[in-house]
């Protein structure tokens, strides 16, 4: 299944990869979109850095999926 970045429309084959793309790009517009979803870009990035597993990125991947479903 193709998933689109809600900010720049970049396509990847999973929401997790789009989540990584959003963090990797990290510019003002991508950062702003994440913050507008009721979560903090920085908090999620730091969760990814400090915690075992992938909580930071999976949280954003779930948001991306939700947004794609409702679009």
């Amino acid at each position: 299944m193709e998933v689109k970045c809600p900010v720049c429309n970049k396509q990847r084959n999973s929401s997790m990869k789009i989540a990584r793309h959003i963090f990797g790009t990290g510019d003002k517009s991508h950062r702003g979109w994440v913050n507008s979803q009721g979560v903090s870009f920085t908090d999620l990035l730091i969760a990814q850095a400090m915690e075992a597993g992938n909580r930071g990125f999976t949280t954003l991947a779930e948001i991306i999926e939700r947004v794609q479903e409702t679009a």
Binding site: G24, L45, A49
Partner: peptide, 11 residues
């Protein structure tokens, strides 16, 4: 915020 200076990824 929380002193995060730079993040880089490669995949």
């Amino acid at each position: 915020e929380r002193n995060m200076n730079v993040y880089r990824q490669i995949e």
